[in-house]
Every structure is written in structure tokens, then in C-alpha cells.
């Protein structure tokens, strides 16, 4: 397939993610989504490029900021909106909400609101693939802040010892809630990975979906051959850490960095393609919202189900 066709496919998915999240922003004041949302606006290229570089049965273990990965992995849009609405038709019947979004049927495993907690899950799944002679790989998705948790270090160590097919994917937006990297990190991720014998790559062009896809294809090939790999992708979180607004007025960061990023953001730059794709995507989103609106609320039976 020519790059142009691939680009169009990636662009469509990225635009879908952005428009879904923009619809969430519109809906949020209505209080129909009664739980925290962590928007990935600005970071869509990572989810899209990575998931397109994976095989459909590769697994992704992600975070509370996973609307993008859910959609990029092919999760049902109807079930996603119903989940955000907390309805029976939700992908987890309303028990996951935005923060624990999971769609194992398309390879998105349970996500976590506790930073770094799903990283070892990917290592365990990868061991299962290896033991059973499968060619699948597991991808641990986390932010740069997660690398400060001990479990990140522990997981890299064990993955290297066991030589399991796991890709450690760091979405580096430089922020942990409202804290910048210089107050948090005294190490360099690549050097840390290298100390375990794990190869790594840092991609600065986190707006470039094709470059991310290519980097993922290359990294996944190494991982599939049995070597863990760390792929760091620089990206930009446009919105506040949690919620649907912006946060520049809190003065912990300026809008300069985000503005510079927006000037390269294909979803902003390529308005012609946006205009072409938008109507169809909007119809898809409206159908999903209507599905959520019509889905019944869960009750006591659902509360008590699936505990043990």
C-alpha cells in the first residue's frame, strides 16, 4: 500500500479520536458522563501510529488516558460512549468508565488509573505468548511519569531476564499531572533501558503518524524475535490533566509548547482532509451517542455481578 493510502487511513482514525473527544467536551457540561476523563487530544498520533504498526492480535495494556488506544485498536464506538455514560451497553457494562477502558475482544486489556500499574501485566502476557509458542506481542503503554515508579524498573529487569516479547511504549508529554520532568527525573530513559541490555529509540516527531507507525513496525519486529524494546515517543497534551478544559491559566506551563506542536499537527494543518472525512465521522459519533442515550442504566444485579 502506498504511503498516501496508509496516511489517509491513519489520519481518519486520528480524526475520529479527536472528534470523539471534542464531542465528549461538548457533552461534559450536561453531566451525562459522570466520571473523570483524561483526554488525549494532541496525542492521537501515538495511539494511531502504534496500533497500525501492530498486528490485530497484539495486546495493548494502557492507562487512564486511553480513549485513543481504544479507538485505534478497533474498539466499538457505541460501546465506548455507552461506557462513558455508565450504561448497560457499555463495553464493561458501565463499571470501567473512561479510566479503566478495556476491550479485550480487540486486544485492549484493562487500563489503570494508578500510574505504571499495567506495565507488569504486559510482561506476564508476553510470557504466556512465549510459553505457548505464539507470535503475538504485548505492548505496555505508559507516560514519562510512570518510569519513575519502581514497577517500571522491575518490569524491564524481569522482561530482559525472561526475554519475553514486550514493547515498552512511553508517551512522553513531559508532564506528570502538573509537574515537569526536571523536578522528577535524574536519569535518561535510554541509558536506563540499556543497563538491562534493552534497546530503545526516542522519536521526537510525535505528530508524525507515519513515522510512529514505521518506528513501531521496526520495534515490533525486534520484539517478536524475543527482545524487549523501549520506544519513546515525544508528544503533547493539549488539554488539562483531567477534565475537558485547558490549563494554561494556572500558569504552571505556557501555551507556547502546545502552540508549536499545533503548527505541526496534521489534524490542524490538513484542513482539506479534515473537511473531506468529517461528515462521515460525525455521523458515526452521533450514532454512538444515540446508542448510549438509549442504553438502559445498570441496577443492583449488575452491581453485584462479576465480583468473584
Amino acid at each position: 500500500m502506498k504511503d498516501e493510502a496508509i496516511y489517509r487511513r491513519l489520519f481518519r482514525t486520528a480524526l475520529l479520536i479527536r472528534l470523539v473527544e471534542e464531542r465528549i467536551i461538548e457533552l461534559y457540561p450536561s453531566d451525562k458522563i459522570q466520571s473523570p476523563v483524561h483526554l488525549s487530544i494532541g496525542q492521537e498520533a501515538v495511539a494511531v501510529g502504534v496500533c497500525d504498526g501492530l498486528k490485530p492480535d497484539d495486546l495493548v495494556f494502557a492507562t487512564y488516558r486511553s480513549h485513543g488506544f481504544y479507538i485505534a485498536k478497533g474498539g466499538s464506538l457505541d460501546a465506548m460512549f455507552a461506557e462513558l455514560y455508565g450504561r448497560k451497553g457499555g463495553v464493561s457494562g458501565g463499571k470501567a468508565g473512561s479510566m479503566h477502558l478495556a476491550a479485550p475482544e480487540v486486544g485492549l486489556m484493562g487500563s489503570s488509573a494508578v500510574v505504571a500499574s499495567t506495565i507488569p501485566h504486559a510482561v506476564g502476557a508476553a510470557l504466556s505468548f512465549k510459553r505457548r509458542g505464539l507470535s503475538q506481542i504485548a505492548v505496555a503503554v505508559f507516560g514519562d511519569g510512570a518510569t519513575e515508579e519502581g514497577v517500571y524498573h522491575e518490569s524491564l529487569n524481569f522482561a530482559a531476564l525472561m526475554k519475553v516479547p514486550v514493547l515498552f511504549l512511553c508517551e512522553d508529554n513531559g508532564l506528570a499531572v502538573h509537574s515537569h520532568r526536571p523536578v522528577r527525573q535524574s536519569y535518561r530513559l535510554a541509558e536506563h533501558a540499556a543497563s538491562f541490555g534493552i534497546a530503545s529509540r526516542r522519536l521526537e516527531e510525535g505528530w508524525d503518524m507515519l513515522a510512529i507507525r514505521q518506528a513501531t513496525l521496526e520495534a515490533a519486529a525486534k520484539v517478536r524475535a524475543g527482545e524487549p524494546f523501549v520506544l519513546e515517543i515525544v508528544t503533547s497534551r493539549y488539554k488539562e490533566h483531567v477534565g475537558v478544559g485547558e490549563d494554561f491559566h494556572f500558569n504552571y506551563r505556557t501555551s507556547d509548547g502546545v502552540d508549536a506542536w499545533k503548527r505541526r499537527d496534521p489534524l490542524i494543518v490538513d484542513q482539506k482532509l479534515v473537511a473531506t472525512l468529517r461528515p462521515d465521522i460525525e455521523r458515526e459519533i452521533e450514532a454512538a451517542v444515540a446508542f448510549a442515550e438509549a442504553s438502559p442504566a445498570p441496577g443492583r444485579d449488575e452491581l453485584l455481578a462479576d465480583v468473584i
Binding site: 506495565i119 502476557a125 510470557l127 504485548a138 524481569f158
Partner: peptide
């Protein structure tokens, strides 16, 4: 040693590892 193995002193990661293996068909 594939079915009975030692681990690093990493209780947290080793538990998460067990979860990951358990949801993918193994019984740790």
C-alpha cells in the same frame, strides 16, 4: 525452570506479571 522459577526481589511487578499471565491463559 519454565514452570518453576525464581524471580527478582520485585514483589509488585511479579504480582502484576502473574495477573498478565493469568488473563492470557496461564494459571500462576
Amino acid at each position: 525452570k519454565e514452570r518453576c522459577f525464581d524471580t527478582p526481589i520485585s514483589e509488585d511487578a511479579m504480582t502484576g506479571f502473574g495477573l498478565g499471565a493469568a488473563i492470557r491463559g496461564l494459571r500462576p
